[in-house]
Amino acid sequence: MAVMTDTDRTVARTGRPVRWSVVIDHAILIAGSLMMILPVFAVFISTSISDVEIYREGLNLSLGPHMAENFDKALFLKGGFTGEITGSSMLINSFILGIGFALGKILIGMTAAYAIVYFRLRFATFAFWIIFTTLLLPLEVRILPTYEVVQGLGLANTYTGLILPLVASATATFFFRQFFLSVPEELVEAARIDGAGPVKFFIDILVPLSRTMVAAIFIIMFVYGWNQYLWPTLITTDESLFTLVRGIKQIIQNLDGANVPEYGRALALAIIAILPPVLVVVIFQSWFVKGLVESDK
């Protein structure tokens, strides 16, 4: 084994001379990666030291004994204004928002795009452009009227009220429309001759063909939904509906006072809040790339 490594190295040394442009490229990339990873790493390590130490010295890069305790507190210690919410309940809320938002978006986007592309609707193009212009009106722009409507419908402090207004925008419809337009016409015709009606064609042919597209949109939308801050802050006043991203601050505020703030717990919560989007991207990405390589069309 060692011998092999040695010869390998010689081959590499003689066969491929060092190119400085490659070295510089890698140096830049590595530096960039460190810039992004190091703060997160520092936060992670700092969850292992006591609150007092963090208060005195700031973020720390040496491991302490409190990591398990801090993560346990972060997930299961009751807190907040009511003293009823835990990190894990907020985590569940975040998942409900992220997954609900992503699925809702995919469902609505796909069906709307299906109608626009495959049915001879009189105003299909017009409808598409109307939907498209909603891209110019993200939730932040229409937040007051939207709040008014959702509140009026009695949906404040419900999951529906949390998710639905975010779902209403054109991004997924647009992506699916472009994808459906690239599906060969003959496939529709073959399915028609094979006796597949509109619903069957959608479920049996179009949805399976869109797998990679669905995965891609799911990644984007889940992360987007997970990271929502403004809308959840506005529409949920009931602590049991708080999401992680919105709730971390709440916990610290409520624990602030004459005591040393629970920095360790807050940092652990931050790490927990970062993890799911990262995992979704990592898991779905490998699947996504596989889908791209084994191109079906």
């Binding site: 060969p184 003959e186 496939l187 015709e189 073959a190 399915a191 001759i193 042919i205 399976p208 063909l209 797998r211 079906d296 069309k297």
Partner: peptide, 14 residues
């Protein structure tokens, strides 16, 4: 009661 063969085959890729 017909069947058709297309130029690009139009097989269901999945």
């Amino acid at each position: 009661d017909i069947a058709m063969v297309f130029q690009n085959y139009a097989l269901y890729p999945h």
